[in-house]
Design a protein around this nucleic acid. Structure first.
Lengths: 342, 342
DNA sequence: TTGAAAGCGCTAACAC
DNA sequence: GTGTTAGCGCTTTCAA
């Protein structure tokens, strides 16, 4: 067994003693360098370096109340969507010299509450992605601690929203122009803000273009649910499916394939998010490209803004999506088109 | 702007005052409940609950030196391999009541050192996944702080190793039995322990089976590098490619497709890891299924073991991989087989 | 510009 | 069982 000696790390006092100054001066040399004589400061920094002194973040946090740590809560780490979000958040945090604490709330409102409570004292603020908390709980949490939500709109809590409404409109017009007249929407989780937005946008354009739209769901936002959803789709008389997210779309693709149905020639499929894999599944997925990483970054930036200056005027930031056409959509099957147009 | 009142959270003293006991009793009621009179304890817990008291983890950590936080460092959050690892680690940490701090070292040894130094005071220990640190730096870090490495073997630092040697042997025999006589290995990062293991296993079996093996690389473990690697493969006279990881394999698939080469009928491709996407890319990838999430979980469990009992005997844990056959491998093209066998 | 001293919220001896 | 009393390592007045 290795000698796990863990010799006590040098403290501010050790450095002070070596330099013949007071501990408070060493402290200042690190936290307010401009308030220390240049020569003394240099001497302190040098000995500190040489002694391998590292300020203890815990001790630093106690009196100041600031930990330079941010909490990121996601409902399901398993979902690649959150991978991109985590990545963006981690980058923004690291850039600002902040540390990121990651927690999975497992789609549970109670777990989320527990985690927020437990972490509240250890972080300077939270980013709650696709929070499962009720509006009132969210507001309560916001009253206690700086907080930014992603994909929720709960004024006055600042939010970062990926708005797929615009992209959805594009998608429906794309389908309409390909001759599709009847489309299905595979819905996501019941409480999802994005889901409501998407369905509404889809309905609006469908109505305007005289298309028939049917909603199937709610469904869990997973590949497996997509597999099941595909069967439900086949029960409807549609030539295209728009799904809540790419995971569902990938599940649909898999199931249709297994049932011998040709995508896109018999049925067109449109996903949402453009996650890792959307471009190399089979066929490559026509989907709404969402700035997920940017959303993570923006959320952290917003949070840092809140921390710096809690008086800054705040409003939700909305990030648009855009349609990326690949190979899972094409003209509606001729027979059906004739039925409608002929 | 919302009232961001942040009223001071109640402390142990507030609760103590309300209950008419000493602060230390309140402290005990939480940390050593058995050492407090049952009635008093209940009274304390009740008032605490009712006042919304939450122990401050920072303050708790200062005297005890234990933060109940673990640091997980990965070289590249972008890589889905690490998604699974993060997931496993997060779950194991959460289960044990620990908090996970996540950091991306961006493939840089220096960044990794900096992050370890910065976090050392804030976490109870580290999991370093695919660390870019030298053996000596790793040992030095281990002397200061409990530490577990993933995919490195640096005694006495405890390690969790995903050993693809076994799986690689299976893969090569699979190819041999399909009539392949010349195979290419698309290598990963130069310093990778796993890469060395894989190449050695591949060579050994190739020799035993009388196959010709050529190594191409080192390559970054990314889809883009796979795209480039595919061209290099075509320069060699081979009928099968084994890649360092699935990202490379997916890049190869994409490029071969673009160049009009049929996988698996003209060239067979074998990946490694079985990451998200390996089963729905086109064609679905024959690959080595690696217990990535288990590795993350195991690493955290090992670390927790170190924390509990630093005297426990330690040895590396190796997790095996196994071949998962899908559709990117098939019999070697007839022409070549005839050349060799005829 | 620097030092002394009082905490930050909690734990852990050590008494009583 | 419970209270008292020191700290943990650092920041931050307040004086000098």
């Amino acid at each position: 067994m290795a000698a796990r000696d863990q010799q006590r790390a040098p403290t501010i006092h050790d450095v002070a003693a070596r330099c013949g100054v007071a501990a408070s001066t060493v402290s200042r040399a690190f936290s307010r360098p401009e308030r220390v004589n240049a020569a003394t400061r240099q001497r302190i920094l040098d000995t500190a370096e040489q002694m391998g002194y590292q300020p203890n973040p815990i001790a630093r946090a106690l009196p100041s109340g600031r930990t330079r740590t941010l909490g990121l809560l996601v409902p399901d780490i398993t979902n690649p969507f959150f991978l991109d979000l985590i990545r963006g958040a981690e980058r923004a945090a690291a850039t600002a010299g902040y540390t990121l604490v990651l927690a999975d709330t497992e789609e549970s409102s109670d777990t989320e509450t527990t985690v927020v409570d437990r972490l509240a004292g250890a972080v300077d603020g939270f980013v709650l992605a696709s929070s499962r908390l009720s509006d009132s709980r969210l507001r309560a949490a916001y009253a206690r601690k700086p907080l930014v939500v992603v994909n929720r709109r709960v004024p006055p809590v600042p939010g970062v929203l990926i708005d797929s409404a615009q992209g959805t409109r594009q998608a429906v017009e794309h389908l309409a122009s390909l001759g599709h007249r009847r489309i299905a929407y595979l819905a996501g989780p019941r409480a999802s803000w994005s889901d409501a937005r998407r369905w509404r946008a889809l309905q609006t354009v469908a109505r305007r273009r005289g298309l028939h739209a049917v909603r199937i769901g709610p469904l869990a936002p997973t590949v497996d649910a997509g597999v099941a959803g595909a069967d439900a789709v086949l029960l409807e008389d549609v030539t295209a499916v728009v799904t809540f997210n790419d995971l569902l779309a990938i599940g649909v693709l898999r199931r249709l394939r297994a049932r011998g149905i040709d995508v896109p020639h018999q049925i067109s499929v449109v996903g949402c998010d453009d996650i890792f894999g959307a471009d190399f599944c089979h066929p490559p997925l026509t989907t709404l490209t969402a700035p997920i990483e940017a959303a993570g970054r923006t959320a952290v930036d917003q949070l840092l803004g809140l921390l710096d200056n809690s008086a800054a005027p705040r409003r939700d930031i909305v990030l648009p999506t855009r349609l990326t056409i690949r190979d899972s959509t094409s003209e509606a099957p001729t027979r059906l088109r004739q039925e409608v147009t002929g």
